[in-house]
């Protein structure tokens, strides 16, 4: 149990510390693919350090909620990162929140971000909040349905049990997970504000969603939000790996497997980041009105995955 708690803390800390690195890697790959010279992989850390050192500038009209929200969002993402098995399956915290609660954590963070965006009362803030909620009201149930497909296979909504069933039991092919994987990719793209739903690199009023919400933040608050965004990307990548490529995650009590798990994880994340950058480079940003259609498709694909499970696998 003690080893488990230590492992849990180590894993969570590792996720928090390494998350900006993944962000740096994705940015680097994207720059290479677009023929630009890439920023160093540690650029996100430098940005965070710079932001933490600055004086925070806050609008006159801000309420305490505005200053509280970044901490809340960061705490939610840290908890989420702690629940998802990255290196080992033995997570003493994970019974506290299963996959449904995980969706709840993401939703909690999002609602606080949207409320904080509306707090100042600027035109862009409310616009961003509205668009974010528009994206999320379809992405959230879709994510839940993806999890349900995996839960139906493994008869559990606990992530360690799901990973255990998929990675450590007898190998089987689950067609329903093919649907779930496609839906999951679409959801991750939308939830992490990437192309084709959002573009993290612009401040163009016609298209921005996430950036519009955090326009009023500066210095340490902005740093925390940026870090939480990196952590979210990391958590989603870890989730995708845990659901669809779980091989290599150390099982219950297999401490000797940890170095191998670390290598496997690093390899999968590097590959995943590169694939994300590639897909972002080859696709075009859709118009905002098409975003509900994109996400509606993801939602229905996820439902279809559940259906396929009932049809082919029971």
């Amino acid at each position: 149990m003690q080893a488990g708690i230590l492992l849990q803390l180590a894993q969570t800390l590792l996720a928090i510390l390494l998350a900006p690195l993944l962000m740096g890697w994705v940015n680097q790959c994207r720059a290479w693919l677009q023929g630009r010279s890439a920023p160093p992989i540690t650029q996100p850390y430098r940005t965070l350090r710079k932001l933490f050192h600055k004086d925070a500038v806050i609008a006159h009209t801000a309420s305490p909620l505005f200053r509280f929200a970044p901490y809340m969002i960061f705490a939610c993402m840290a908890l989420a990162a702690g629940i998802v098995p990255t290196l080992a399956n033995d997570l003493p915290f994970s019974p506290a929140a299963d996959v449904i609660a995980l969706v709840g954590i993401f939703a909690l963070a999002r609602v606080f971000l949207a409320l904080a965006a509306m707090d100042i009362g600027t035109s862009f803030g409310t616009l961003g909040a509205r668009r974010e909620m528009l994206v999320s009201f379809l992405a959230e149930p879709a994510l839940l349905m993806v999890f349900f497909t995996a839960s139906l296979i493994s008869q559990s909504t606990e992530l360690p049990v799901i990973v255990d069933t998929l990675a450590h039991q007898e190998f089987a092919i689950y067609p329903s997970l093919a649907f779930a994987a496609v839906a999951f990719w679409m959801i991750s793209v939308a939830e992490n504000a990437r192309i084709p739903v959002d573009n993290p690199a612009t401040h163009l009023e016609l298209t921005m969603i996430h950036e519009a919400m955090i326009l009023e933040y500066s210095a340490r608050h902005l740093a925390l939000i940026e870090w939480a965004v990196a952590l979210k990307l990391f958590t989603y990548s870890a989730l995708g790996i845990a659901l669809f490529l779980p091989w290599g995650i150390a099982g219950q009590g297999e401490l000797g497997m940890l170095p191998l798990a670390l290598v496997a994880m690093a390899g999968k994340l590097l590959l995943g980041g590169a694939v994300l950058a590639f897909l972002e480079t080859v696709s075009a940003k859709v118009r905002l009105f098409r975003a509900p259609e994109f996400l509606g498709t993801a939602f229905l694909l996820a439902v279809l995955g559940m259906l396929i499970h009932f049809l082919l696998e029971v």
């Binding site: 092919i173 093919a178 694909l301 396929i308």
Partner: peptide, 19 residues
């Protein structure tokens, strides 16, 4: 058996492509 599982997977892919 595995090859039947793969046929099932291909069937699901067929449906996925239809959608």
């Amino acid at each position: 058996t595995y090859h039947l599982q793969i046929v099932n997977l291909l069937a699901a892919l067929l449906l996925l492509i239809s959608f």
